[in-house]
């Protein structure tokens, strides 16, 4: 284990290091405790938490915990959705499109994200929130997605959750800028891209299952502000649409992407597909609140 060496290196640069956190002895003891309790993957974060304590103001730690708690809520939502889906008899078919394998893989990741975020929040000295109760009809907006006849609804909600998750993490990334927060930003980015892989997979699944229908036109990437979802209910469609509002942006950092560099094949549709847009915490909360019982 090279972690002690890291402490030694830090101490060389900053003789006050141990005083800034605790006694050397307590640091080693705490770290041994962390090491025993956390998986190896969490060690950088536990170490980061200690460095935070030494080098950053408490406000920074609070911001990180706020962001991670927000992320944990979303991961609880996704994780429970897939656990319920996989447990629902006759819902997810073991079909040639790969439905079952896809949702088993996605469910495993969402559960791992919950565990990871809880461990990280704990390592930061806070208590993670407990899992809330959910209503996956969003107060009657959607039919029960876990009934076998409603697999299309399950797929549509899954796609919406994944695309929303991508936008939610993206929106929080700037709140994690800073040397002391590097491990948290990196972890958030690594979850962010996993959500994007999920979104791509679910969108392809819907494309392959639905064939030449409105829902079958969906691509792995988001075209303009199109959800590629038609539930047959105006209310449900409007609820879904909130997750795609603003995805039709074709100007990035003041640069017009349409036809950029003289490339006429970069249409408005292609320009919008090339960049996924963030959502603010408030926008995401508005979208997901109906799913909390």
């Amino acid at each position: 284990m090279q972690l002690q060496n890291i402490f030694t290196e830090i101490e060389k640069k900053d003789p006050e290091f141990y005083n800034k956190i605790d006694s050397r002895r307590k640091v080693m003891k705490d770290f041994a405790k962390f090491s025993g309790r956390l998986s190896l993957a969490s060690l950088p974060l536990a170490l980061g938490a200690m460095l935070n304590k030494a080098y950053s103001k408490d406000t920074s730690v609070n911001t990180v915990v706020d962001v991670l708690t927000f992320a944990l809520k979303l991961e609880y939502l996704e994780s429970r959705f897939y656990l319920n889906g996989l447990a629902a008899s006759g819902l997810i078919p073991n079909d040639a499109f790969g439905s079952l394998g896809a949702f088993q893989q996605i469910s495993t990741h969402e559960a791992a994200h919950v565990t990871f975020l809880k461990q990280t929040i704990t390592a930061l000295g806070s208590t993670p929130i407990a899992e809330p109760a959910f209503d996956f009809t969003a107060k009657g907006t959607f039919p029960n997605p876990f009934l076998p006849a409603n697999y299309a609804v399950f797929l549509a909600i899954s796609q919406t959750f994944e695309d929303t998750g991508v936008r939610a993490y993206k929106g929080q990334a700037p709140n994690l800028i800073g040397t002391a927060n590097r491990p948290y930003l990196t972890a958030a980015l690594r979850i962010h891209s996993v959500e994007a892989r999920h979104a791509s997979r679910v969108r392809k699944l819907r494309h392959d299952i639905n064939g030449a229908t409105v829902s079958g036109n969906v691509k792995p990437w988001i075209t303009l502000a199109q959800s590629g979802i038609d539930t047959g209910s105006g209310t449900a469609n409007a609820a879904v649409q909130q997750s795609y509002a603003g995805e039709d942006l074709t100007t990035q950092a003041g640069v017009n992407i349409v036809g950029i560099g003289g490339n006429s094949f970069i249409t408005a549709a292609a320009a919008s597909e090339s960049f996924d847009e963030p959502l603010t915490m408030a926008q995401v909360i508005t979208i997901v609140t109906p799913f909390f019982a």
Binding site: K170, A173, S193, A196, H198, S200, P220, D276, P278
Partner: peptide
């Protein structure tokens, strides 16, 4: 950072799609 974030998720969508073209459910 936001601009980089807007691009990386599209790269991840590509990665998952290409992986599916090669092997079913290898997206992640």
């Amino acid at each position: 950072l936001t601009a980089a974030g807007k691009i990386v998720s599209v790269e991840a969508r590509h990665a998952a799609l290409i992986r599916e073209l090669l092997n079913l459910n290898s997206f992640a």
